[in-house]
Simulated scan of single mutants.
Amino acid sequence: MKTIRIGSGAGYAGDRLEPSLELIKKGNLDYISYECLAERTIAIGQQAKLKD
């Protein structure tokens, strides 16, 4: 049976990319998947809009 290695992560606008890049480079992965936290990104954008 073949082993498949899957990496995953979650983030929003403003998160650092370095942890993901390290996972890609050193994780010996076959696939990588991300959950984008759009709700948080939109909320931060809305707060900035209301301040301006």
Rank of each mutant, 00 (worst) to 15 (best):
M1N: 11
M1V: 06
K2M: 10
K2F: 11
T3R: 12
T3L: 09
I4P: 01
I4K: 07
I4E: 13
I4M: 06
R5S: 04
R5P: 00
I6M: 11
I6A: 03
I6H: 08
G7D: 12
G7Q: 09
G7A: 05
G7S: 03
G7V: 03
S8L: 09
S8G: 11
S8H: 13
G9V: 06
A10Q: 15
A10T: 08
A10P: 03
A10G: 12
G11P: 01
Y12W: 06
A13T: 15
A13I: 11
G14V: 14
G14Y: 01
G14P: 10
G14K: 10
R16H: 12
R16I: 12
L17G: 03
L17T: 05
E18P: 00
E18D: 13
P19D: 09
P19V: 03
P19N: 05
P19F: 04
P19Y: 07
S20V: 12
S20N: 04
S20Q: 13
S20A: 12
L21W: 14
L21Q: 14
K25C: 02
K25M: 09
G27K: 10
N28L: 01
L29Y: 02
L29A: 03
D30W: 04
D30L: 00
Y31G: 00
Y31N: 02
I32K: 00
I32M: 10
S33D: 15
S33C: 05
Y34Q: 06
Y34W: 11
Y34E: 13
Y34R: 10
E35H: 04
E35V: 02
E35N: 09
E35M: 01
E35A: 02
C36P: 00
C36I: 07
C36F: 09
C36Y: 15
C36D: 14
L37I: 06
A38R: 11
A38F: 12
E39D: 13
R40E: 15
R40K: 13
R40W: 15
T41W: 00
T41F: 03
T41I: 04
I42V: 13
A43S: 08
A43F: 07
A43Y: 08
A43R: 13
A43T: 05
I44L: 04
G45F: 02
Q46P: 01
Q46E: 15
Q46K: 08
Q47W: 14
Q47N: 12
A48M: 11
A48Q: 14
K49C: 06
L50F: 06
L50P: 00
L50H: 10
K51R: 11
D52A: 04
D52T: 07
D52N: 08
